Simulated scan of single mutants.
Amino acid sequence: MKTIILNQPGEFQLISREIDDKLADNEALIKIHKIGICGTDYHAFRGKQPFFSYPRVLGHELGAEVVALGKNVDTEQLVIGDKVSVEPYLNCGTCQACLNEKPNCCENLKVMGVHTDGGMCEFLKIPAHKLHRSKVLGYEQLALVETLGIGAHAVQRASVTSNDIVLVIGAGPIGLSVIQFAKLHQAKIVVMDFNQQRLDFAKQLFNTDVSVLAKEGFTSDDLKTALNGALPTVIFDATGNPQSMMKAFSYLAFGGKLIFVGLFQGDVTFFDPDFHRREMTLFASRNSLPADFKMIIKNMEEGNIQTQAWLTHEAPFEELPNVFESWLDPSSKVIKAMLSV
Rank of each mutant, 00 (worst) to 15 (best):
G266M: 06
L289A: 07
L252Y: 08
L289P: 01
L252T: 02
A284H: 04
A284M: 06
S285E: 09
N287T: 05
V268E: 01
V261F: 09
F270C: 13
F260R: 03
K257Y: 01
S285I: 06
L258V: 02
G256D: 05
Q265T: 13
R286Y: 11
Y251R: 02
D274L: 14
G255V: 10
E279A: 12
V268A: 04
K257G: 00
S250P: 03
A284K: 09
D274C: 00
F260I: 08
K294M: 01
F254Q: 11
D292Q: 01
T281V: 13
G255I: 08
M280R: 03
D272G: 05
G256I: 07
V268F: 06
S288E: 03
V268Y: 08
F249E: 02
F260H: 15
D274T: 10
G262S: 10
D267W: 01
D292F: 02
G256R: 07
F275D: 07
S285N: 06
E279H: 15
P273D: 04
E279W: 06
L252F: 11
D274Y: 11
Y251D: 09
F283H: 15
F271D: 12
R286C: 02
N287W: 05
F249N: 05
L282K: 09
R286S: 08
P273G: 03
T269K: 14
S288I: 00
Q265H: 12
N287Q: 10
V268N: 01
L282D: 03
A253F: 02
D274N: 12
F260K: 03
A253Q: 01
S285F: 09
V268P: 03
D272N: 11
P290Y: 06
F293Y: 15
A253L: 03
V268C: 09
Y251A: 09
F283A: 04
P273F: 06
K294F: 00
D267H: 13
Q265A: 14
